[in-house]
Structure formats: structure tokens, C-alpha cells
Design a protein around this nucleic acid. Structure first.
Lengths: 229, 229
DNA sequence: CGTCGCTTTGATCTAAATCAAGTTGAGTGG
DNA sequence: CCACTCAACTTGATTTAGATCAAAGCGACG
């Protein structure tokens, strides 16, 4: 999860046209001329793929943000991860996607045919290892998130979320969250009201500042870390 | 998680001595003479490895049962998975184990040096693929478990647990659970009392029968499936 | 500058946690 | 073989964190 194939400095900058075999944005996967990549854009809330849909492509976010999630029949939703610029998502070993994916905001992705990746992995051990590394990264995130969902309090979950997002998308100390309170709740196993109340409390305690509901400045990361269980 | 390298029929039967290069219990990893395997036994509640301890070995359960878990500083525990006979656990890509492991009951494992597995993976793409497959299996389980922990009710969690254990360890319709109610609670993100109450209710509804607290017979799997959200 | 979706805040409810006894039964030693 | 013991389990009473229900703010966008 959140595996960065792009060097951080490349995020948000102009990228080379796709299909360019000399481009190195695809990290260890670069230089494999057999990898066919294309670009595609999705509008806000547009589905990228559904749960259990055949997994034909692997995706890397050029700009935007994506949520991957599972639904129960009555509409309850668990978001497994948020994916930001540079992140790869949709990598599967089995036939189909086990979580659905939607664009949180307007999003542009690079697509790689899964078949071409597998072929590259079959001939180049470093590619195979890179794929394993990406899956292992997703597993690490999921293991941490199980602890959060099973055993942490609402405030601990929200503190953890803020520190995660601070690490992943803060620019010059400002966090511009792409997702709404309901998304955050569905990621943390809480309701949107509980998320809002926790944020309000942290605001009143001076731990964070708002400039609009989704622009957050962390003012006391140490305090936040002490709250994350 | 729960990846079966052993054919089901082999589980619980006598296994060949380790270090035997012709043994096929190690599934796709067989035939790699470079794989050094040894056996080791752990008593009930004995630690196999701790969280963040260097990951030197990969383990396969010959007989017994293991829990892998994370702890918070105040003692709250989240069990990530239960591992039963035939299952492989402790496979890591990074330097260290991200969950601790303990024997639930007296347990014998086969150990494989992680270094030797990596070496085999470097020369044989089918081994590399098998390792990726095992990690991907663990990830699938974790993704399903996040939905359970984040969004399912107590009864839904217990129903899910019973169906999982029924599938994995029921013999002749009888489930002999190796773990206590507290372990089940820490796996499902519940207290042991809530687990006990859910089981009692299922018993009173005739969905299951007990012969001792840990010997369970499922009498209405269909009903249980309908309760699992 | 009005509208609608998002967010906040308040009041109330409830599922599960916590606190508290009992009960059971597997293992031990007499 | 029986009785004792102790951890595990069940069950009951009460509490509570977070959910749910409800009503304002607010702010981005047309």
C-alpha cells in the first residue's frame, strides 16, 4: 500500500509521456520495454474497478487520490486504504480485485497491463521481487490497521490517521485532505460524527489548526503521537 | 496466512525426517536441496518470536496451533491470525517480524532458514512466485478481517469465526478449538464475555452444540452464513 | 448571493465493555 | 477412583464510548 514508485520529488511535477521506455518513474520496473503503460483519468467519485472484477491492470496515481474498500450488502463500508500521488494500487495475484476502487477527487492514473508485469516478473527476478515487495507493503499496512480497528479508541484512531496523512501528504506543514469525514470514518471504523468530534476536540486543545474543514495544520505532533496508543 | 503447503491428507500424519531433499511436504519449495529445514517444539503459551525481532526463519506447523499478534503498551492485544497444522507463518520480506508468535497449545514446527528461501527464490522463479503467493494470501485474509473489525457486529464476527474454524479444522463435523475465549475475543476485537454470550445465544437457538466449551458442532451452517453479514 | 452538500454540534440511545459473582471441568494429587 | 483446585467459562448487573437521530452553520460553486 502506498508504495512509492516515484521519487518523492517527482510527485506533483510534470511526468514524461507514457510508453517511454527510458522513463524511470516506474522505479525498478523501468527499462522493461515490454511494459505497456497508458494514462487515464477519472472524475470525482467515479468507480475505477469493482470488488471481484477481473484484475486486468495495475494502477499508479499520477495526480489525485483513490479509496479502496469493501461493502457489506446493507451498505456498510470499510475503506482498506487511501492511495495518493505516486502510489500503486490494484496489484493482485489472483484473478480479481478483492476491494473496489473509486477516485476521491479528479484523478489521473498510469495503467500497466497486469499480464505484461507478470511476463516481466517471469524473466526478471528483480521485477518479481518488486511485486512481492509491494504486496508485502500492503500487508504491513493491513496488519497495523487491524490493530487500530480492533483495539484502539476513537481518539487514538483519529490521531493515527492525522499522523499518517501528515507523513504522506503534508506540504509545508499543511495537510490538504482530499476525502470527506464519512470516508475518514469508513477508514477508521467510526461514524463521520465521531471523527468530527475528535477533530473538534483536538482543535480546541490546540493540537491542530483548521483553514477550512479539510485544510489542517498539525501544531503538536508529539502530543498526537502520545495519543496514538 | 493459512497457506497450506501440505496436502490436506498429510496433515496430522507422520512426516518424513527433516533435511530430506526428496520430501514433498514443502509443496512447491520441494526439490531445493539448499533448503535447510529443522524441527522444533514449543510448549503451550511459549513465545516463538517477538514483535520486531529479526526474522531469521519461516515456520510451518507440523502439529499444534499458533497465534500471531500485536500488543499496545497497555496490554491491549490484536491477534492477526490463528495458524493451524500445515500453515506457514513468520514469512517476512523486511528485516523483522511485524507480529509476535506464540504457541496456543504444544506445537511442533518445521523451520526453514529465511536466507536459504531467499536464495532459492533468486534462482528459481517458481519459488519466488510461491513466496509472493503466500504473502498475497495473508493480505487477502487481512483485508477480509479489516472489514470484520471495522464494520461487523459482535454476532456477525462470531458467526464468521465459527465458519472459518469449521472450514479449517473441523474433523467429522466436530470442531476442537485450541484457543480460549480471550484469544477469540482478541482476534475478533471483542471481549471474552461478548464472545461467550454470542456462543451461548447460538447454542440456545440450536445453531451449534457443545461437548465441553471448546468442542463445538455446527448444526446449522446456513443460518450461520446468513448471520455473517 | 442562493443553494446544496459537507461539517459541526447537541440530545438521546444502545451494543458492547466493564465489573462482579457463580459454575464448570480438566488436570492433580491423595 | 475420588476430591480438590484453579483457570476457563458463563451469566448477570451496570456503565459507557460511540452510534444514531436531529438541527443548525458554513462555505464552495453555479
Amino acid at each position: 500500500m502506498h508504495t512509492q514508485l516515484l521519487a518523492p520529488s517527482v510527485i506533483g511535477t510534470k511526468v514524461n509521456p507514457s510508453n517511454c521506455p527510458t522513463a524511470d518513474q516506474f522505479g525498478l520496473l523501468a527499462g522493461h520495454a515490454g511494459l505497456i503503460t497508458t494514462e487515464y483519468s477519472y472524475g470525482k467519485d467515479e468507480e475505477i474497478y469493482g470488488e471481484d472484477e477481473p484484475a486486468e491492470y495495475v494502477y499508479q496515481i499520477i495526480r489525485g487520490a483513490v479509496r479502496t474498500y469493501k461493502l457489506l450488502s446493507d451498505g456498510r463500508r470499510q475503506i482498506g486504504a487511501f492511495h495518493l500521488a505516486g502510489d500503486v494500487f490494484g496489484l493482485e495475484l489472483g484473478k480479481s480485485h478483492r476491494l473496489a476502487a473509486e477516485a476521491i477527487i479528479d484523478t489521473t492514473v498510469r495503467l500497466v497491463k497486469r499480464r505484461s508485469l507478470e511476463q516481466a516478473a517471469g524473466t526478471d527476478v528483480s521485477v518479481a521481487r518488486k511485486l512481492w515487495t509491494m504486496t508485502a507493503g500492503d500487508l504491513r499496512h493491513a496488519e497495523d490497521h487491524m490493530l487500530l480497528l480492533g483495539r484502539k479508541s476513537a481518539m487514538e484512531r483519529v490521531a493515527n490517521f492525522l499522523l499518517e496523512m501528515d507523513r504522506r501528504l503534508a506540504i509545508a506543514g499543511l495537510m490538504a485532505l482530499p476525502m470527506c469525514r464519512r470516508d475518514i470514518g469508513d477508514y477508521l471504523g467510526l461514524t463521520l460524527e465521531t471523527v468530527s468530534r475528535a477533530l473538534s476536540q483536538l482543535h480546541s486543545e490546540g493540537v491542530l489548526g483548521f483553514s477550512g474543514a479539510r485544510q489542517i495544520v498539525l501544531r503538536d505532533r508529539q502530543r498526537l503521537r502520545s495519543m496514538d496508543a
